[in-house]
Design a protein around this nucleic acid. Structure first.
Lengths: 345, 345
DNA sequence: ATTAGCACTCTAAAGATGAGAGTGCTAAGG
DNA sequence: CCTTAGCACTCTCATCTTTAGAGTGCTAAT
């Protein structure tokens, strides 16, 4: 039952042809077709024997007795690992991509645009993960009196991002009091890690004027909130509807489960999180992702960086029967372009 | 062909029963069933005659010769306008709703939660429109030096919201210069409408020190951006996937179009915008919405207010064959609850 | 105005049929 | 020993046929 080296060169070539053929038209591939397809001068019967071996090895299956074969998950895996020759991406396309990415003026839309680009080019679903940040540095605090007993707290973190919240105070603070508080915080804590700020602020609380404590506490509350927010990663997705076109997703029930997974975000985040830690491109084929809803899907991801530090992951989601040779370079290039745009800012 | 008062009381009763029956099982309703259903002691033949009249009036149709009848758009419209008796909503449910709305702590999530609630209760798609704001008042400006030639501009508008952007400057500004600029802007323009600020700033530019112009211009750019953003309304939607369960949406193609309409947002925004201006609850049945993709859908909306001023719309989207008597009060109550939560802040 | 009766129509589900594609096996040939 | 021709067999898929059931419209009688 276990003939290890039964997958010789010829068998591999046939497997490659079979999978490529299947990826093209989605129909089970029979021995006849395969003979015509590949250049080898073989008879269907011979090919049938080889196919039987490939089936024994668990690389292909016949959906029913006497139909052609289709690749299994393991088949795709072997194909992707050992047989695939990726199509080089057209320079023209790269330029177009670059242009569209750069011209997405508001930085907040950049990731969304990247996702849209991915989905448009691949005609599948594109996803870009917005990463959590393990280090959040306080840059500046500002208190702004709004009305009686209402103060707007503005927190600048990581030298770019602004967080804000309105807090209720138990008494009215004058502008100068607020100024004093923010001066203190800025001089004492600017540049520190936010979780540090939290602790040190708690400790130093005793030494301070008691009635200032309340407002300091409020500032601290916000740091908590910011930290929480930063530790929950999120993603933007586009082109989900593209997936509706693939016959594999056949029944609406499965489609629904898939879309629910997308909007729940939890499962997919978990998957993206896994691939952010693995260096370089990752490919999850079918149930390799570990999530039953993605059984008939493959996910191709690549991390993107800011100044050589990995900060997030992007990728595409499509049916296992996807044109890996085209999709892989697209994901790769998009990740690189996004990295360069992010780093040049 | 035109017998105006042919829809007498009995006919109306039968129509009501027919539609209610159809809403329940989605099967065409025949004369037999209808007789059993309603209390009137009539023979199927009589009912058949009445049904023929109703069909002439365009209120029901037979999907094919000799099957039962189903309501037309006009039929539903008549039903909703004249025959419907809405189910009073359970107090318990109201309480639950109220609790869930109030407990959604971060205000940003409030609208999203309302949408989720709508979709969960009705098992259809919930939508809450985030309205554009016609008046944007400047409250406070703050410039914060980040690095050489990089300044973070923070804009507080409408006494609550904070907008920010990093700008590149052509030379380095000192803290005191920036302070001076913001002092000027705050003292001169705080409390003004943002579009006013823009104009007046342009005019006064000539009188000012030329090298300060650049940074003022940048601030102005942001006001532009904010205005733009505020004038584009948006919505949050949830439970779209619920719609996948309804057989009406039958083929995946239509479903795809529907979902694409949702994510494009344009068409639906247009519809919601229409219903924000109409006072009170609005019901669009089938093609009344004017959008072909919504042909087999009905949209029920209700505006919500802050302190008696209408600021947005919320609603649900489902198949025309929906339980109007249950959904209508849910939308109504949710709008009222949301209004009260928003007004109490 | 209502209803019983009847012929008629249409759907939907269940079998029947046949072509086509593909297989596995066996035995013969290089 | 690998390859191949030949053949019986299997399974799908699309097309028909059949049949039961539900429902209608019309007519004539109440």
């Amino acid at each position: 039952m276990n003939k290890p080296s039964v997958i010789n060169e010829r068998a591999q070539l046939l497997l490659k042809n079979l999978i490529e053929h299947y990826i093209q038209d989605g129909q089970p591939v029979g021995s006849r077709t395969l003979v015509k397809d590949c250049k080898l001068n073989l008879s269907p019967a011979t090919v049938r024997n080889v196919m039987a071996d490939l089936e024994d090895a668990g690389l292909i299956v016949a959906p029913h007795t006497s139909s052609g074969r289709i690749p299994t998950g393991r088949g795709y895996r072997f194909f992707v690992d050992s047989l695939l020759t990726v199509k080089p991406i057209r320079n023209q396309l790269i330029e177009k991509l670059k242009l569209e990415l750069i011209s997405s003026a508001p930085a907040e839309q950049l990731l969304g645009n990247a996702s849209t680009l991915l989905s448009n080019i691949t005609r599948m679903a594109g996803v870009v993960m917005i990463p959590r940040q393990e280090k959040v540095t306080l840059r500046h605090v500002e208190f702004l009196p709004l009305a009686v007993n209402r103060v707007l707290v503005i927190l600048v973190v990581n030298s770019q991002e602004v967080q804000n919240k309105i807090i209720q105070t138990d008494r009215e603070y004058s502008s100068s009091e607020l100024q004093q508080a923010s001066n203190y915080l800025n001089s004492e804590f600017a540049g520190s890690d936010l979780s540090d700020v939290r602790e040190r602020l708690l400790k130093s609380m005793q030494d301070m004027r008691a009635d200032m404590n309340k407002i300091m506490m409020s500032a601290m509350e916000i740091t908590d909130q910011v930290l929480q927010e930063k530790h929950n990663s999120d993603y933007v997705m586009s082109g989900e509807t593209n997936l509706m076109d693939y016959a594999e997703m056949g029944d609406v029930g499965k489609l629904r489960q898939l879309f629910e997974t997308f909007s729940t975000k939890n499962d997919l985040l978990h998957l993206l999180d896994k691939s952010i830690h693995a260096q370089g491109m990752q490919i999850f084929i079918g149930d390799e992702s570990g999530h039953p809803v993605l059984q008939e899907c493959s996910v191709i991801t690549s991390p993107y960086k800011v100044h050589d530090r990995v900060v997030g992951v992007l990728g595409v989601i499509g049916p296992t029967r996807m044109a890996y040779d085209r999709v892989i370079p697209v994901v790769d290039v998009t990740a690189k372009l996004l990295s360069s745009v992010l780093s040049s800012e």
